[in-house]
């Protein structure tokens, strides 16, 4: 399943970069010894702001790709005559209460007792 929410770590980095840019602008304005480098500080601050925006937007997109999940579908086989229970991967044509031949244990009628999925998350 894909989500639209951005990961908190990307949001935090984005906020920190914006704060860094703000601090640079303030330093360039109020600290006299640094005022000689105001152009450099301004460019550095703008670069931080650009990086902050970039991370905010691109970070959200990377999450959409990360959280794709798949499923593992199991077919459970039981028997009318005994308590045997077998599990195997689902194959097309399986359905619950389908009779699947004689039981290995008691030669009774074995059938599909259940079909269910177990989610597996992929990175």
């Amino acid at each position: 399943m894909m989500q639209r929410e951005r990961q908190p770590k990307f949001a935090m980095i984005s906020i920190l970069l914006t704060l860094g840019a703000f601090i640079l602008f303030v330093l360039a304005t109020i600290v006299d010894p640094l005022s000689n480098y105001s152009n450099v500080l301004m460019i550095a601050g703008l670069a931080l702001l650009a990086a902050s925006w970039g991370i905010y937007f691109i970070g959200g997109r990377s999450l959409q790709r990360a959280e794709i999940s798949t499923e593992n579908v199991i077919t459970v086989i039981g028997c009318r005559g005994c308590d045997i229970r077998e599990e195997r991967p689902f194959s097309e044509g399986d359905y619950v209460f389908k009779e699947v031949g004689p039981c290995k244990k008691c030669s009774g009628i074995s059938y599909i007792r259940a079909i269910y999925s177990i989610p597996i998350k992929k990175d």
Binding site: A28, N36, S38, N39, M42
Partner: peptide, 14 residues
């Protein structure tokens, strides 16, 4: 031109 617009030595808010 740059020095006129952004006076070096006076900060961003001169």
């Amino acid at each position: 031109v740059v020095n006129m617009v952004i006076p070096v030595g006076q900060g961003l808010f001169p």
